[in-house]
Computed example of a mutant assay.
Amino acid sequence: MPTSFEAVAALLVALIPGALYIWSFERMAGRWGIGLSDRIFRFVGASAIFHAVLAPVTYWLWTSRWPSIAIGDSHPLWLWLIAVVYVAAPLMVGTALGAVARGRSGWARWITGPDPAPRAWDYLFQGERDGWVRIKLKTGGWIGGAYATYGELKSYSAGYPEQQDIFLARSVDLDPATGEFQFDQDGSVRLGAGGILVRWEEIEYLEYIDA
Rank of each mutant, 00 (worst) to 15 (best):
Val8Asp: 07
Ala10Pro: 04
Gly18Trp: 02
Tyr21Val: 04
Ile22His: 02
Ser24Arg: 11
Arg27Ser: 14
Arg27Ala: 14
Ala29Glu: 02
Arg31Asn: 15
Arg31Glu: 14
Ile40Lys: 06
Phe41Met: 14
Phe41Asp: 13
Arg42Ala: 15
Arg42Asn: 15
His51Thr: 14
Val53Pro: 06
Val53Phe: 15
Ala55Pro: 03
Val57Trp: 15
Thr58Gln: 15
Thr58Lys: 10
Leu61Pro: 01
Leu61His: 13
Trp62Ala: 13
Gly72Trp: 09
Leu79His: 01
Leu79Met: 10
Tyr86Thr: 03
Ala88His: 03
Val93Ile: 12
Ala99Pro: 01
Ala99Ile: 08
Ala101Met: 04
Arg102Gly: 05
Arg102Cys: 02
Gly106Lys: 05
Pro114Trp: 08
Asp122Ala: 00
Gly127Gln: 06
Gly127Arg: 00
Glu128Lys: 09
Asp130Gln: 02
Val133Ile: 09
Lys136Trp: 04
Leu137Asn: 03
Thr139Pro: 00
Gly141Trp: 04
Lys154Met: 12
Gly159Thr: 13
Tyr160His: 12
Glu162Cys: 06
Phe167Ala: 01
Leu168Trp: 01
Thr178Trp: 06
Phe181Val: 05
Gly187Leu: 04
Gly192Tyr: 07
Gly192Ala: 06
Ala193Ile: 12
Val198Gln: 01
Trp200Lys: 13
Ile203Tyr: 04
